[in-house]
Write a protein that binds this DNA or RNA. Structure first.
Lengths: 115, 115
DNA sequence: TTGACATATTCCCATATCGGAATGTATCAT
DNA sequence: ATGATACATTCCGATATGGGAATATGTCAA
């Protein structure tokens, strides 16, 4: 890149950015059930067709979905492997929220004793 | 909102958007170890102070971090609870990548038998 | 070939974004 | 009060974004 400043990491750069968009999460949720043609997504989510195509393009570029042609239709399906990095990153904080919940629980039990 | 089109969901809208920015993930990773003042983050991650303050602002607005004043310092710590929704959303796909891996494994074993 | 259908791409616009620079604000020590 | 320290905020510019509308591409059927 030749530019001294960048506005924001491109949405196409990685899975984290791709799933930041709610509609794209909706699409992934929908595709999680089953492989589907674009038209089904359009109908089910009530979005414009070009909008869906553009979101699918982003998801495909970061590897979150795979596409294959089937006659006149193009079937999109999830590539779940690409979601793992997100899962694993969030997992590194699991210990923390368990501790925090544990502390809340302990404090509650302390109060019960005092009563 | 009065506008017919929006460019993109605001970064401050939810945790998904907040963690889409790599530097904010860096900050969260750093704070996961221990509560820290802003200056430590600046020094450790090699970012400009205003930049760090702005990222912290975003993280605080979506509840990913908590701040408390300690003399001249402001200590920032993680609020791990706010990461759970991300973890849980990614978990809904766990079954899928396990299946996909299983299929890969099975295919590999098939090939071994044929040799 | 000519449509009809399914999907992708392009163009335009309003707006959100980040970084840098400058400035504001709060707290403590003297 | 003054200055030093630690952060936060504001303003700016370059750029990325998503939606809408229009258009292009690709596939099948007659």
């Amino acid at each position: 890149m030749y530019h001294s400043s960048m506005a924001r990491a491109a949405t196409t750069s990685d899975a984290f950015n791709a799933v930041a968009e709610p509609r794209r999460r909706d699409i992934l949720n929908y595709l999680a059930l089953q492989e589907r043609p674009v038209g089904d997504i359009v109908a089910s989510l009530g979005l414009e067709q070009p909008s869906v195509s553009k979101h699918l393009r982003v998801l495909k570029d970061v590897g979150l979905v795979r596409a294959r042609r089937e006659g006149r239709h193009i079937l999109y399906g999830i590539n779940a492997e690409a979601i793992r990095p997100l899962h694993e990153w969030t997992s590194t904080f699991e210990r923390l929220w368990r501790n925090q919940l544990q502390r809340v629980k302990e404090r509650a039990e302390e109060k019960m004793k005092k009563v």
